[in-house]
């Protein structure tokens, strides 16, 4: 026997269940306790950089859209700075929160984020990562929140040197991580939970 390390263990995850919208987007659910839902607006004033919209749908293994999911995104501003207590590299755009939360459309399940194109941020060794947005998906039937990233199809050069994209064993799966230009300033990023188009999910 050796000394105990006295570390705690993380609380186990449980599914968000069918009513996650009650707790996280109560106004969307018709429970108007607060002024508005958290994460509904990412831009609180004029922002720096390129304003974009990201749309997408989460599909199950049968190709059916999820209408009871909740999608969150987290990203830096156009200069690559996070609006976070532990951002030490500078002050982020004061009119950009960097965090969005969407319940998806009530009928189609499609989620929409009005945001800005993120700047590049460093990898732990100092190399620059390609522009990306962190994504977290929860829903009924998902036992632990799924992490992935949105990269951009029109960032070839940066993507080709990104430390994570270059690490993916099945390089033919990289397109599952790329948001595709759909119209001016609009990108599509669909998420497939399983199947031949399964999105690359992260052990994060």
């Amino acid at each position: 026997m050796a000394q105990k390390l006295n570390t705690l263990r993380e609380s186990p995850s449980q599914t968000a269940g069918p009513y996650v919208h009650i707790g996280c987007v109560p106004n969307f659910s018709g429970i108007a306790i607060y002024g508005g839902d958290l994460g509904a607006v990412m831009k609180t004033g004029p922002v720096q950089g390129e304003e974009i919209t990201i749309k997408g749908t989460v599909y199950d293994g049968m190709g059916t859209p999820l209408r009871d999911a909740m999608i969150e995104i987290w990203q830096p501003d156009a200069a690559g700075l996070f609006r976070s207590a532990n951002e030490t590299r500078g002050a982020a755009d004061p009119n950009f929160t960097g965090w969005g939360r969407s319940p998806g459309d009530m009928v189609t399940g499609e989620f929409t984020f009005d945001t800005v194109k993120p700047g590049r941020v460093p990898w732990p060794d100092g190399r620059l990562q390609a522009p990306h947005i962190t994504v977290w998906i929860v829903a009924r039937g998902i036992n632990i929140g799924l992490h992935t990233r949105i990269y951009f199809e029109d960032e070839d050069t940066a993507n080709a040197e990104d430390p994570i994209l270059t690490r993916i064993e099945h390089q033919n799966r990289i397109p599952t991580l790329l948001a595709k230009p759909e119209a001016s300033g609009v990108y599509r990023f669909d998420i497939h939970l399983q199947g031949t188009q399964e999105t690359v999910f992260f052990d994060m």
Binding site: A139, G141, N143, R167, L193, G195, E198, F201, F202, D203
Partner: peptide, 13 residues
């Protein structure tokens, strides 16, 4: 969970 669970290994980094 059967049709909402990823089947490929998660990517670690």
């Amino acid at each position: 969970s059967v049709k909402r669970s990823p089947q490929a290994a998660l990517l670690s980094f």
